[in-house]
């Protein structure tokens, strides 16, 4: 094998250069530079999110878990990690009702739907259908903005806390959460909530900005003149990645 390879390398001359997939002059991955770099960026971004979720796993296992077998009803305590369906059980406009994970289910649906409208925009771009690209980009922006609004409500409610609050170690009643104190459980629970959902929300916000820019460029006919809608495809890759991260955040933060 090595000998025959050396022989081929020897045989290559200026007139008959080597022409394998990795010998230059072509695209071994059959993807454009921009798309390839988007993939590598997303890979590095996945490392960051994986680090966040791994940290969550370590810190959660380091804390005591609520013992459901003890027969006692769950209540917030800094002694153990909270059960997510007891923390995230409120819905805008339905004050005081116990609706475990209902709002986060709605947010998940909104994000999956925005992913669908994004693929539809990319598909329309392949057909050079400017009107359809505009239409689906606009829907994606709308769903993205709705998701951000929902997250803002979720944060406000989390920071504000429940009517009852929780009696802290010093005897005072504390409502809601900040980076140093929280009524739901150990301090780190709220810290991780702010950092993980906040970092994801920042990504959604950047995505919405990119989509607004792509919508303006589509309307101005920039991609039409360029002859392809690859920019929409690259932004699409980013947008689906943000949806993908939410799938993992949803499982590891809200379900498990």
């Amino acid at each position: 094998m090595a000998i025959s390879q050396a022989a081929t390398q020897h045989a290559a001359t200026l007139d008959t250069p080597r022409s394998g997939p990795w010998d230059g002059g072509n695209e071994p991955f059959k993807a454009s530079y921009g798309k390839l770099m988007m993939w590598f960026f997303l890979l590095s971004d996945a490392f960051t999110f994986a680090a966040f979720l791994t940290t969550y796993g370590l810190i959660r296992h380091r804390h005591a878990a609520f013992d459901a077998a003890s027969g006692k009803a769950f209540e917030f305590s800094t002694a153990y990690w909270p059960v997510p369906d007891k923390v995230f059980n409120s819905f805008p406009g339905l004050h005081g009702m116990d609706l475990p994970l209902a709002f986060v289910a709605l947010m998940t649906m909104i994000l999956i739907f925005s992913s669908v409208t994004m693929v539809l925009a990319v598909e329309a771009g392949h057909r050079m259908d400017k009107n359809d690209v505009q239409k689906w980009l606009l829907w994606t922006i709308l769903f993205g903005a709705t998701f951000l609004g929902s997250q803002a409500w979720e944060w406000t409610h989390f920071i504000g806390g429940t009517d009852e609050g929780t009696r802290m170690a010093d005897g005072t009643i504390f409502h809601g959460a900040n980076l140093a104190m929280n009524q739901y459980g150990p301090v780190l629970f709220a810290d991780l909530f702010f950092f993980i959902t906040g970092f994801h929300g920042t990504h959604v916000f950047s995505g919405v900005c990119l989509l607004v820019w792509a919508f303006i460029a589509t309307t101005n006919g920039t991609f039409e003149k360029r002859g392809h809608y690859e920019m929409v495809e690259k932004i699409g890759l980013y947008w689906h990645f943000v949806d993908l991260v939410w799938v993992f955040v949803f499982t590891f933060f809200y379900l498990v």
């Binding site: 994986a50 791994t54 940290t55 796993g57 296992h61 804390h63």
Partner: peptide, 13 residues
């Protein structure tokens, strides 16, 4: 990494 650090968390616990 995930499996290793969750195991580590249980050990610290």
């Amino acid at each position: 990494l995930l499996v290793a650090l969750i195991t580590e968390g249980s050990y610290i616990n």
